[in-house]
Nucleic acid binder design. Structure first.
Lengths: 140, 140
DNA sequence: CTACGACTTCAAGCCAACTTGAGGTCAAGC
DNA sequence: GCTTGACCTCAAGTTGGCTTGAAGTCGTAG
């Protein structure tokens, strides 16, 4: 059982945010000492996961959905795998952006538009960011 | 030179967003046909980069900073490398989250808190998400 | 026993990133 | 030459994720 203040110190998440997270049902305090919320120690793990999820571009709602409604990480396997795959795609995007930045930093072509490496990266980028329209091959 | 409508179709970015991006100086239209904005074809590349940057958690301001004020991708090398490194860290976080989700989906331990793999992942997670406080070893 | 500081509630405020709506303009097809 | 539909402007609204402020409540140190 740890006091909200200590949770804030140990996790780096401000008390206001902890209260907010509790308000939206993302975490739960188990009791009070005086007025102060007391949290189970594993809230720290949860906050780490939340931070990772946020970093991965998931909304608090999506993250909440990863924890079952009872607070444990128990969701159908395939949903978890779907999330994991989404992360995989996300990582691929970041990789392309990272490579592009590195390339731009190092390539000395007068205009990047003339550099084949750059164009290749951009082609990859547009493949990943463009909304996939159906090819209509089998459509009506 | 392509019409805003075609840009929207080809990029998947709605006209309202294109106007917004122009308003904040992220992209530029070069002329009008009647009232309609006409864009240079390379705006499509730029939009791909913007989408990647957004996916990487950069704000529009940060992305704007990656393009020089004149629109080309020309920023000091070290800034670009710094961004690239940030992306690298970001990717590491996503990797941990991905591995955690996959693990949780597959591990059959009664409680994840008892599983050493899970605990190891969580330790990695907290290392990455915790605010690095100075160890004060060499401090005042 | 009193003062202090860190917590409490609740409502309101704020920022980014867009979207929506009202009212208007234009060019191309019929 | 008129209608139509996709664009235009500008202001206001929306959502997500918090933060801030006012006014109040504790428990511990002095």
């Amino acid at each position: 059982m740890i006091d909200i203040g200590e949770v804030a110190d140990r996790s780096g998440v401000p008390p206001s945010t902890l209260r907010y997270y509790e308000e939206i049902g993302l975490i739960r305090s188990l009791s009070r000492r005086g007025l102060r919320r007391q949290f189970d120690a594993d809230v720290l793990l949860k906050l780490s996961l939340i931070a990772l999820g946020r970093a991965g571009g998931f909304s608090l709602l999506e993250i909440a959905a990863m924890f079952g409604q009872d607070g444990r990480l128990d969701v159908p396997r395939d949903e978890l795998h779907a999330k994991a795959d989404e992360l995989q795609r996300q990582m691929a995007k970041l990789r392309v952006l990272r490579d592009t930045l590195r390339h731009v930093a190092d390539c000395k072509a007068p205009s990047h538009l003339e550099c084949p490496t750059f164009r290749k990266l951009m082609k990859a980028a547009s493949r990943m960011t463009k909304p996939r329209k159906l090819p209509a091959t089998t459509a009506v």
